[in-house]
Design a protein around this nucleic acid. Structure first.
Lengths: 213, 213
DNA sequence: TACATATTATATGGATACATATGGAAACTA
DNA sequence: TAGTTTCCATATGTATCCATATAATATGTA
């Protein structure tokens, strides 16, 4: 049987990503224990894991709360994300396998369909799939891990930068350029294009953060 | 009072870095509890944290052991480290503050002294200080965190690539070039030089790994 | 009425007790 | 003697219990 804390971690992550738990919300061990029908022990282990992966923070004797990122921290995070996303493109260009190419094409096609339907939630998901395909195609397991974790932290803020008019089509066009560069095995170009693509999202951060208030 | 598990984490990290605990070694909770004079609860919390930061791994019902990295995983790790180290140089070049410059100069001077004395352990430490100064000078807190974690994972393998004749002087010369590029605010050059510098270490990995067997 | 202090309630941090699955040893059989 | 099966020891995973620090509230005084 799997450990109870593993289930709890998934559940709590889901609660945070879905917005049920918002940054700043307090987590009480006894409440969670009652809610999930387990003792405080696995609850505490789950909380500790989430603290370690940066989703929660604790003050001694004060318990855990969903971590609040400052604008500076979010910006730093985006900067690292942009660098690593670019790196993934470069590696994917160098390595480029048949199945890797196929996955990226699938992700791109998902983006195209969603953009054509102007379905923003679908595009957000397709966007994740496209990026994930590139991560995987890099062939570097650590890189995939790092990008997953960063993605998780960014996701908490549920930023939907596509709601700007025309951004969907523009994002799709950038995805096309990036894929083309990778398929042409032009790592340097793919790297740059992806960095720029990410930075465009990051540039919107300040206004989006204000909108959250 | 600080949490007991925090002390345990530091102690266990030290044991791992110092080689007292080697990759593959099994950790038994009861033993550790007796050794540190605490109950199993804080021990378990410490173990969980170390699992989360990648230093240990657990199999259900089988407990924790010091994580063993394959050659491929170590290589991937180095690749990411090289990218992020290069990024730190670029950001440090852009931002360059007076105190940042001073810290880097201090680190470089430590390297010079150690290299002149041909003191390999001292150089290893000075090397860390030099790199840490650049990390900090980047002004990106996430980047510093990531690099710290990667450094910790690499350190477990106690790679001492300086034992090659002349490598100390060569490493020092590279450090000088990197600092010069940063001080000249030439981010692109600093980035490239650092990437190359890191890759030179990474290239020695296979032979060093074999030597560990 | 406002501020300070003391008391109490409560939630976290740690210890201990209990359940259960896994690995190893021993015994039995082919 | 080798292999298989069963039993037991032990270590992990979970629950509960205890200690203590913190915070909130109430009371008393200025």
């Amino acid at each position: 049987m799997a450990r109870a804390s593993d289930t709890l971690i998934e559940q709590l992550k889901h609660d945070i990503f879905s917005g049920l738990l918002k940054p700043g919300d307090q987590l009480e061990e006894a409440d969670l224990a009652a809610r999930f029908g387990v003792s405080r022990t696995p609850i505490r282990e789950a909380i500790r894991s989430l603290v370690d992966c940066g989703l929660l923070e604790t003050r001694p004797r004060k318990g855990a709360m969903v971590r609040v990122l400052t604008a500076k921290e979010l910006n730093d995070l985006f900067e690292v994300a942009a660098e690593l996303e670019g790196m993934a493109c470069r590696l994917a260009s160098d390595l480029l396998t048949l199945s890797g190419k196929k996955d990226i094409e699938t992700g791109l096609e998902m983006c195209r369909v969603a953009a054509e339907a102007e379905d923003i939630p679908a595009y957000a998901q397709a966007n994740l799939a496209f990026h994930a395909a590139i991560h995987k195609a890099s062939g570097n397991a650590w890189l995939v891990d790092q990008l997953d974790q960063i993605q998780a932290r960014i996701n908490v803020y549920r930023l939907m930068p596509y709601e700007v008019v025309g951004r969907l089509e523009k994002s799709l066009a950038e995805h096309r350029e990036i894929s083309d560069a990778i398929f042409a095995k032009n790592g340097a170009l793919a790297n740059t294009l992806m960095r720029d693509h990410m930075m465009l999202q990051g540039a919107r951060l300040p206004s989006l953060l204000k909108a959250l208030e």
